[in-house]
Structure formats: C-alpha cells, structure tokens
C-alpha cells in the first residue's frame, strides 16, 4: 500500500543523532541508545509487550499493550500487523514477519509477549 511509511523499507537510510548514516536493517540496539544520549530531550524507554490482540476499534489492526519505563505505565497502541518494532538484543520484530517482508523486504523476528521494545519519551527535567 502506498501509505506505508518508507523508512522501514530495507535499504532506507537512517540518520543517527551522532550524524552517522546507517541502513535500517543494520541498526543495533546501541545505535538507539547512543542517539538518545546525544540528542538531548529524548530518552529511551524499555517497553515490554504484555498483550497482543486484534484491535476492537480498528479492524485489521493489532492492539499492542506495553508496560513502559521504570513507572511500568500501561500504554496501548493500534498498529498494522506488519509494523516493525526494535526489540532489545534481538532487532526488528513484528506481529507478522511475513507481511513485513512482503511490504518492506525487512527481515523480522515474530513479536511476542515478553519482548522488550525500544521506545522513546521526553527526558524529564529534574
């Protein structure tokens, strides 16, 4: 579908906060961690997947339930099943690796309950 964001396409060029350029498929956990460190204002959170189910409101989408950060805040987002998430120590993962491969040519692991995803939030000012 033409509405899919193309930054997940295999080969897409991603600029890290350090200025370094990498292909999306070559990104490592440390690239996100380092980028957040130097970006100022952004912070990496660990968001654990606690539930995956079909969206009640939006047919065709998947509701992903996370507990986010040290506060273990509960956050739910609805995404297409092919949407990739970056899992700590594992890399790109999605609810449907087959669809991700079809749409983006990006290799993904299956996203599962218990996976800890990279997410960002605003740095809290002390």
């Amino acid at each position: 579908a033409p509405s899919n964001p193309s930054h997940f396409m295999k080969g897409a060029i991603i600029q890290l906060a350090t200025g370094e350029l990498k292909r999306v498929e070559d990104l490592q956990t440390q690239d996100f961690v380092r980028s957040a460190e130097v970006s100022g204002g952004l912070k990496i959170d660990s968001s654990m997947v606690v539930d995956i189910r079909a969206s009640q409101q939006k047919p065709g989408l998947v509701s992903l339930h996370f507990t986010v950060g040290e506060q273990q805040s509960k956050v739910t987002i609805d995404v297409p099943p092919e949407h990739p998430f970056f899992v700590f120590g594992q890399g790109w993962s999605s609810c449907s690796p087959e669809r991700t491969a079809q749409l983006y040519d990006l290799a993904c692991h299956p996203l599962q309950v218990g996976d800890v995803c990279v997410s960002i939030t605003l740095q809290q000012q002390p």
Binding site: Q15, D31, S73, I77, F85, T121
Partner: peptide, 19 residues
C-alpha cells in the same frame, strides 16, 4: 535519496501523568 531520522523508527510512548 531520502534520509530518515532515527527517532521516526521507534514509537513515542508517553506514559500518562497520574498526578
């Protein structure tokens, strides 16, 4: 060739403030 910022790849999950 378009260049995308790193933060566009990961979700912004803002915890809801409770207080």
């Amino acid at each position: 060739v378009p260049v995308f910022p790193w933060h566009s790849l990961v979700p912004f999950l803002a915890p809801t403030q409770s207080d």
